[in-house]
Simulated scan of single mutants.
Amino acid sequence: MPFDPVETWKTMQVKVWPEEYFLVDLPFEHADLAFAALKETEARYCAVTRDQFGLSLVIDSETWARLGIGNKERVHFGPLKVLSTDSELPFDVPGFIRTAIEPVNARGLKAAPICGLRSDHFFTGANTIDEVVEIFRSFAAEVRYD
């Protein structure tokens, strides 16, 4: 039986990662660079998504600069901040991400999700992180934040 998304959010801890990040668009021919970033980053969060356009990489700004990713990317957005669920997240929770995103979008903000098996992650502009965290607090007052 599925879990209720609002009740799940009420028990969820959320972590805001301390680093600043970039969302980078890389052509697939630079997959070696994306995988090097995964291997070499000292930050605690990094994500690579492959789709029909190539690779999207969420990478900390230090690794982005150190590996010279800016010389190979097509475009990047940032600086960004990443929020992650930091509690056990049941897989069978329909609407979990929508419950978080709808109030953010209603305020004209963006918190883009990246799903993981044990955690969900959201990235947003570094300049809007406090507002997004406050919105998350408002719909699930019992949520604890690090």
Rank of each mutant, 00 (worst) to 15 (best):
F22E: 01
D25F: 15
A47S: 15
R44K: 10
V143F: 10
I69Y: 08
V93C: 05
V133G: 09
D86G: 09
F3A: 03
L55W: 12
F136V: 01
S119C: 02
L109S: 10
L38T: 04
P94I: 06
A37T: 04
A100I: 10
V16W: 03
D120L: 08
L67F: 08
E29C: 03
N105F: 15
K10R: 15
D60N: 10
E102V: 12
T8M: 10
E40K: 15
H76T: 05
A36Q: 13
K10Y: 07
P94K: 14
E42W: 09
V48G: 05
E131K: 15
T41K: 09
R50M: 04
R74P: 00
E62W: 11
D146K: 14
V14H: 05
D51I: 01
R74I: 04
T99H: 14
A65L: 03
F77I: 05
R44S: 09
G95Q: 08
S138P: 11
L117W: 15
S119G: 02
E20D: 07
R118W: 13
P90Y: 12
V143K: 15
V93K: 13
D60S: 10
V133N: 07
R74H: 08
L109Y: 15
G95W: 14
P113I: 06
T63W: 05
Q52M: 08
E40N: 13
P18I: 00
I97M: 13
F122G: 04
L38F: 14
P2K: 12
P103K: 14
E131G: 10
